[in-house]
């Protein structure tokens, strides 16, 4: 994030709790925020999300990462109020969602939020076109208009020509493209994706991640992206929140998690992934060096692994520039040592 202006917050969770079962709110009040899991279990309650404080800035990809059962889906469902939060506050697009009326809730869901699901959740009786146009149909938009909009989205996700196919005639990857197109027809501001690529084969998953980044570059949505795959999180995230047993135990940009893991749980994730894939040049570069070679400048925003070859082949110090080609630092072979070993 650029440090010049404080970014606008589109979504803010404040001390958010979700406890499944009767009397959750009472239990939270009585047991306090640090009560062990067992204390809730004794009352027949399950803690889905515990005292979560996170926020999402406009235009960023905020990734929630954690093992299965750590409460990611619960958290994202609280954010959309598919689940009723048990305690805490939730501000979405300036509105306190925790006490919206049903009508206001329908309104905000129809126009400003949307969601992509792990198992696609397509309607089996509708074609690709029918599925993608469905959210507009629900709003009573006439057929012509909604099909024009839907067609745009179908083209955007690369399914041109498949408009008349039915979901079970498509591969998993194609089905999720439909899911993505469908979630974009209403031009939402906040986009929730709950493990959208987890059901796909690794190769297709990688394609879809690139595709997703391409779309995001065009649309610049504010995104909450759920995954259990740290590599995916690192590839996509501006910031990551790591969850464990319902709590967020660390959040920050990928580099920060990799360089300063808060505990062994986080360290375990970061270990599995080569540092040069996470760290950007800006994290390891030295100060501006007048004598640095600048004929082929290196971008500060690139991850280290993309520039390793170039840096290793060069004998001297190389200049590092930001996106506007202003020199912001320098890099030398020896700067790579702590990263690539």
């Amino acid at each position: 994030m650029s440090s010049s202006a404080t970014p606008e917050t589109v979504l803010n969770c404040i001390d958010l709790w979700k406890v499944f079962g009767e009397g959750g709110a009472k239990a939270i009040a009585e047991l306090g925020p640090d009560a062990p899991e067992g204390a809730f279990k004794e009352r027949g309650l399950i803690v889905g999300a515990r005292n979560v404080n996170v926020h999402v800035n406009r235009g960023e990809i905020f990734v929630v990462m954690g093992l299965s059962g750590s409460g990611k889906s619960t958290l994202v469902r609280c954010m959309t109020r598919l689940h009723e939060p048990t305690a805490g506050q939730l501000i979405v697009l300036g509105q306190d969602v925790t006490n919206l009326s049903r009508k206001e809730l329908v309104d905000i869901r129809r126009n400003r939020l949307s969601m992509v699901f792990q198992d696609f959740a397509l309607l089996p009786h509708l074609t690709v076109m029918g599925n993608v146009a469905f959210p507009l149909k629900v709003q009573g938009v006439d057929r012509k208009t909604r099909e024009v909009k839907a067609k745009e989205m179908i083209d955007l996700v690369g399914l041109t020509g498949r408009e008349n196919y039915f979901p079970d005639e498509l591969s998993g990857g194609q089905q999720q493209r439909v899911g993505i197109a469908r979630s974009l027809t209403t031009q939402p501001e906040v986009w929730f994706l709950d493990e959208p690529f987890s059901a796909l084969d690794p190769l297709i998953r990688h394609d879809m991640q690139l595709e997703f980044l391409r779309i995001q570059k065009m649309l610049n949505k504010s995104i909450v992206f759920i995954t259990h795959d740290f590599e995916e999180a690192v590839r996509l995230a501006d910031r990551i929140a790591i969850m464990k047993n319902g709590s967020v135990i660390q959040q920050g940009p990928p580099e920060e998690l990799v360089l300063n893991p808060a505990d062994d749980y986080v360290k375990e994730f970061t270990k599995s992934i080569p540092k040069q894939k996470v760290l950007r040049v800006s994290a390891i570069m030295g100060p501006v060096d007048k004598g640095a070679l600048s004929d082929v400048p290196i971008k500060a925003s690139e991850t280290v692994d993309t520039v390793v070859a170039q840096v290793l082949m060069s004998d001297g110090v190389l200049a590092v520039t930001d996106d506007d080609n202003t020199v912001v630092g320098s890099i030398h072979r020896r700067d790579l040592v702590p990263v690539i070993t």
């Binding site: 329908v106 969601m115 699901f117 792990q118 089996p124 629900v138």
Partner: peptide, 29 residues
Amino acid sequence: VHTSVKEFGVMSGCSNRQMNWQVLIPAAR
């Protein structure tokens, strides 16, 4: 019917009737 399909219906802002006749019953057809 898969929970996610129901959730999709809610997220699209379906009315009760739309939920019944355009989401649930077709999905379970």
